[in-house]
Design a protein around this nucleic acid. Sequence first.
RNA 1: CGGGAUGUAGCGCAGCCUGGUAGCGCACCUGCUUCGGGAGCAGGGGGCCGCUGGUUCGAAUCCAGUCAUCCCGACCA
Length: 571
Amino acid sequence: MRYSQYFIPTVKETPSDAEVISHQLMLRAGMIRKLAAGVYNYLPLGLRSIRKVENIVREEMNRAGAIELLMPTVQPSELWQESGRWEQYGKELLRFKDRKDTEFCLGPTHEEVITDLVRREVKSYRQLPINLYQIQGKFRDEIRPRFGLMRGREFIMKDAYSFDVDEKAADTSYDKMYQAYRRIFERCGLRFRAVEADTGSIGGSYSHEFMVLAESGEDAIVSCTACDYAANVEKAEARQTGAADHAEARPLEKVATPDKKSIEDVAGFLDVHASALVKTLVLLADNEPIVVLLRGDHELNEIKLKNLLGCDLLEMAGDDVVLKVTGAPTGFAGPVGIGVKIIADLAVQGMKNFVTGANSKDLHLKNVNLERDFTASVFADIRNVVLGDSCPRCAGGTLEMWRGIEVGHVFKLGTKYSKAMKATYLDADGKEQIIFMGCYGIGIGRTVAACIEQNHDENGIIFPLPIAPFHCIISALNMKEEPVRDCSEAIYAQLAAAGVEVLLDDRDERPGFKFKDADLIGIPLRIVVGAKNLAEGKVELKDRKTGGVELLPVADAVEKVKTAVGEALKQ
RNA sequence: CGGGAUGUAGCGCAGCCUGGUAGCGCACCUGCUUCGGGAGCAGGGGGCCGCUGGUUCGAAUCCAGUCAUCCCGACCA
């Protein structure tokens, strides 16, 4: 491709509405342009990277035995009614009506459509297992799209769905996908971790997320220092190690704590550590008030609590509800004498003589004790793990924390959709059985963005070769000089003939300008053809990642590029 | 949806407080010079100041509403 004939609108200045580095660089490098909030044009350069990721995904899906198809973006409401998600899904599901007033939505995911297809076509155990996938645009009307392709409303996704005769077979399908995902992200040149995750609204019993490690990641993940346990904080558990406090229960005592509302305030005022306090939170679970107890230095994990309660809606109660439940303004709630259901974290179970609110303005209680002063109806793990907690799977390890970007997610769905939508088959005995399902997603655009988050410097993007828009750029310093032009054209032709994806910068621009653009768009290899070196028959070969420069005879440079590309693409 | 902020040339911004001819840098066009890390000089083109209404002799500027975008939170395969 000739740069002068192509379309790469780079910009020198950082766009003011881009916050994270990948978003800034994708805009500056002319890869994407925003059309509306969370909706982007993919420009030629961006599209090339996206296609690279798609092709790696496609190859690995096919290798794992999955079969590609393509489903529509527009989906009829009836299927969603059947699965129950028309009501459940909420406002992220963009709904609309056609001219006949029939309801449709833009597909945020395709469990309903694929299950419908399979139930019509698959009748026998002989047709199973089958795994079908597509690479397609999705639409989710996110409350807050942000960070460019990282969280768009319209985005490109690979989604695969497996269908099996029973749970054991479904586990095999799941494992195949898990392994395929590892290969995909390895081939994309990403540093990532596979972590255990909550299944969220997709439902199902078990899942792993694939997290690209990056400071700007929206998710917190933990991993064990000793074994291979890793999990999203939403899901992560810790071994309960705090030895039970066997201290004598001291008499309950009221203390005045004027205007001390937060844990830090009270701990500071009473000169005790936050872990000697018990935090009392009032929440509304499906509009029923409940009280939750946590050790003062711990945080509530709403997902764990939601899963425990099995409720649809869980929210912090407003000041009015707090006043009604505790009889005091927010900041002085406590479990003693309270009239609603109390759920306590496991860490509270071993505590003695702790401090809580007194359900009365400007008062707290000291030496509060379980059983004697109040009873909790449930003890459960409902807190977020913290740095240094003990690993739940091995003896010696502790938990480390990371930030990650979720680029892939694999789910064991079980029979959630097949049951609701009656996707069944006949087994060898002619008996009707429910199909076991799994679903597996990869955010294609997000993978490119995550890659840039992980691979950049002050001059721009540093693409790993397998997903770079071009393998090599030839910076022809002055195309008007005949030797430079002839040599650049010759290298261009030779590389292209060898299957190297090469961009010839033949623009009438100054050298510095071409170098800046080449660095910005992140092409891994650069050949600089300049009059001075060419007089000695040499050109410069520069590595974008290391910055290393070699002065080589033309033929050697060409060979080296061919070899480097061949190496990088070897699977 | 709650909180905060911003809409002025393609991009980045100033002007607004204190109402009176719309400005700067980059980009773009022409010419000359320059040519290994985003060149210099000279000349030039480009604006419904987000939109609607109000106040005023007069509004980019003041007021009200509205739309859009961004950030924090809640939310989220």
